[in-house]
Amino acid sequence: MPIKVVIAKPGLDGHDRGAKVIARSLRDAGMEVVYTGIFQSPESIVRTVVQEDAQVLGLSSLAGGHLEYAAEILALLSEEGDSDVLIVLGGTIPERDAAKLLAMGIAAVFGPGTPTSRVVEYIRDHAPRLRPTA
């Protein structure tokens, strides 16, 4: 079974070059990828993760909304009983915020210039193996 990943753009941030490049590289690496497109609310992202039964959620943020959106998505996922989803985040993230994101439960933060191969490797190594039946 291929690893299933949702790549999502929370909020109004339109910078989607990175999200699309990552989506493509994960697909090329054999994963099953769903890209939500821009303008997603935390609710719609969590709904997609649940509906797609995804093991991994990749959030892309380049407009400063990362702390608020990540916190809300984490809370909604745990309400859904989906707290085992591996959540990674990429974008323009100040160091001080990267530390906060990791502390709140984001598994990894990838900044500008990260090779896509490192993201692929990280997801391969850390994606939960089996989806528990809810």
Partner: peptide
């Protein structure tokens, strides 16, 4: 995007 600052979801992006 044509929303006001008191938008229920997007207010967290005000001034960012």
């Amino acid at each position: 995007l044509g929303y006001d600052s008191d938008h229920p979801v997007y207010s967290r992006e005000v001034g960012k």
